[in-house]
Simulated assay, not measured.
Amino acid sequence: MKKQILVFGIVAGLAFACGGGEKATETVTETAAPEAAAPAPEISLEDKYKDDPIYIKGVEKVKGSDCMTCHMVDRKIIGPSYAEVAAKYENTEENVNMLAQKVIAGGAGVWGEVMMSPHPALSEEDAKDMVRYILLLKK
């Protein structure tokens, strides 16, 4: 009988040491961290204005001209970027007329000392279409 008690004591001791005894349990509930919303994909100008007749006419006329020699949409080269022009001027018919005349006549002073070449062969209507396109680029 002493052997049985000894064996029982060893088994009970091992069971307790290995976690067989009663112990308080903690319930841990993990909450998922809210996922950061992915930034909305940037929409290209072509996608944004693909059905806009002002954009379509204007971009065709700009691409068919020498304007891209000195101007880009988002980056200054020699003259201001189209985005800078759009940011400076409200899209009003008065500004469209004034800017179209500047495109045709050329000039300097508004954006620095570098002169914009005149474009006397450009019709007033074509110049207005180009300016309307540029003013659409306001962010």
Rank of each mutant, 00 (worst) to 15 (best):
M1V: 14
L6W: 06
L6Q: 09
V7G: 07
V7L: 13
V11L: 15
G13I: 08
F16C: 12
C18D: 03
C18E: 05
G20I: 11
V28D: 02
E30R: 01
P34Y: 02
A40L: 02
A40W: 02
P41I: 00
P41T: 04
E42M: 12
I43E: 15
L45I: 10
K48C: 07
K48H: 09
P53L: 05
I54H: 00
I54M: 09
K57A: 15
G58S: 13
K61V: 05
V62A: 14
K63T: 10
S65R: 05
D66P: 02
C67K: 02
T69Q: 01
H71V: 07
H71F: 11
H71Y: 13
R75I: 00
K76H: 13
G79M: 05
P80A: 01
A83T: 12
E84I: 00
V85Q: 14
Y89D: 14
E90T: 13
N91Q: 08
T92L: 12
E94D: 12
N97V: 09
A100L: 03
Q101A: 15
G107Y: 00
V110M: 11
G112V: 09
V114C: 03
V114R: 12
P120N: 09
E125H: 06
A127G: 05
A127F: 00
M130I: 07
R132S: 10
R132P: 01
Y133V: 05
L135I: 13
L137C: 04
K138V: 12
K139E: 15
